[in-house]
């Protein structure tokens, strides 16, 4: 049976991580997606603002996260994946800021990931096609960034996972980096061949895919074993809402407007055995705080539903 995970943002606090991890375990999660990105937010970075969180030394970061690690272990929740702060490159920002993201934030994120014993870290590819002129040129810059991390990832035994992203044209969301499964598969293979290790993998984000009309099933089957982790969440096809799967419909027939059947078929076809991880932190602010337990329990229940649907063809999980 697949493990079920959820991101730690809005569920775990620095002040009392024991309480949060116990809550996750109690509500049905055996794994979590540690939201390292909550410590240096994308809103701040797009405003060219950087806090001093990653100025901490490696030792200081370990000290900072030791209570979280212990709490997770005590609760029986495994940190199965982590989200690196993003973006890793801010167009228009100073060279110093971008250098800091590349040379300080990213390597320290890997170190934190290793400290937690977490096998996968999700990174965002650079969104530079507008400036550089093509998705290929954009990928070259992302690949250069990944190259800077790959040796460390290999030594830690961590797989860096790129995820399918979107970008905006006016108020309309369109496909961004890593939305072509065929190219992603080729690039991942080349990377792993180059480093003779599984340093690169893929994180399929259901919400982002839904926003840009990706057909889930062939996308997943094209990725195959390169798919390592998931960001499961739902939206209205218009905005990146990170809501509970099966929430949205657009017709009076009240059928889901997200292709969850295709999602299950795709995962089943490739024998996905990884964690069914939900990236649904905004749900926890949308529902009243007093309903947090029930809300998390409901999300975990959907995870169990997916697990049941997949159980006919389970695969192997790393870590």
């Amino acid at each position: 049976m697949h493990n079920i995970g959820v991101q730690t943002k809005n569920a775990i606090t620095d002040e009392n991580p024991q309480e949060g991890f116990a809550l996750l375990r109690r509500t049905g999660f055996s794994c979590c997606d540690f939201s390292l990105n909550a410590y240096l937010t994308n809103q701040a970075l797009y405003g060219f603002a950087v806090n001093d969180f990653f100025d901490k030394s490696g030792r200081e970061l370990e000290t900072f996260f030791t209570p979280h690690k212990k709490a997770a272990e005590q609760a029986g929740v495994r940190v199965s994946q982590m989200h690196m702060p993003y973006p890793n490159y801010v167009p228009g920002a100073s060279p110093e800021l971008n250098e800091y993201l590349r040379c300080v934030v990213a390597p320290k994120s890997l170190a934190v990931c290793a400290f937690f014993g977490c096998p996968y870290i999700v990174v965002h590819g650079f969104k530079l096609a507008h400036h550089l002129g093509s998705e290929e040129a954009e990928w070259e810059r992302t690949a250069d960034f990944l190259d800077s991390l790959a040796p460390a990832a290999k030594s830690y035994g961590i797989t860096i996972c790129v995820e399918n992203l979107y970008t905006s044209v006016g108020s309309h969301i369109v496909e961004g980096p890593c939305c072509d499964a065929r190219k992603a598969a080729q690039r991942i293979d080349r990377f792993n061949e180059k480093y003779a290790a599984e340093v690169l993998g893929f994180c399929f984000d259901t919400g982002h895919a839904n926003l840009v009309g990706i057909d889930f099933e062939p996308f997943l089957t094209t990725l195959g074993k390169r798919l390592k982790v998931l960001h499961i969440h739902d939206n209205d096809g218009v905005s990146d809402l990170h809501q509970i799967p099966f929430t949205f419909t657009r017709t009076r027939e009240n059928l889901p407007s997200t292709d969850w059947e295709g999602f299950v078929r795709g995962l089943r076809a490739i024998g996905y055995g990884g964690v069914l991880n939900f990236e649904t932190a905004p749900v926890l602010t949308a529902f009243p705080d007093v309903m947090k337990e029930e809300t998390l329990g409901f999300i975990a229940g959907i995870g169990r539903y997916f697990a049941g649907e997949l159980s006919s063809a389970p695969g192997q999980e790393k870590g």
Partner: peptide, 12 residues
């Protein structure tokens, strides 16, 4: 082409 998924138009 596109196809319809519960009123949402996705790649066909």
């Amino acid at each position: 082409q596109y196809r319809e998924q519960g009123g949402h138009l996705i790649r066909g």
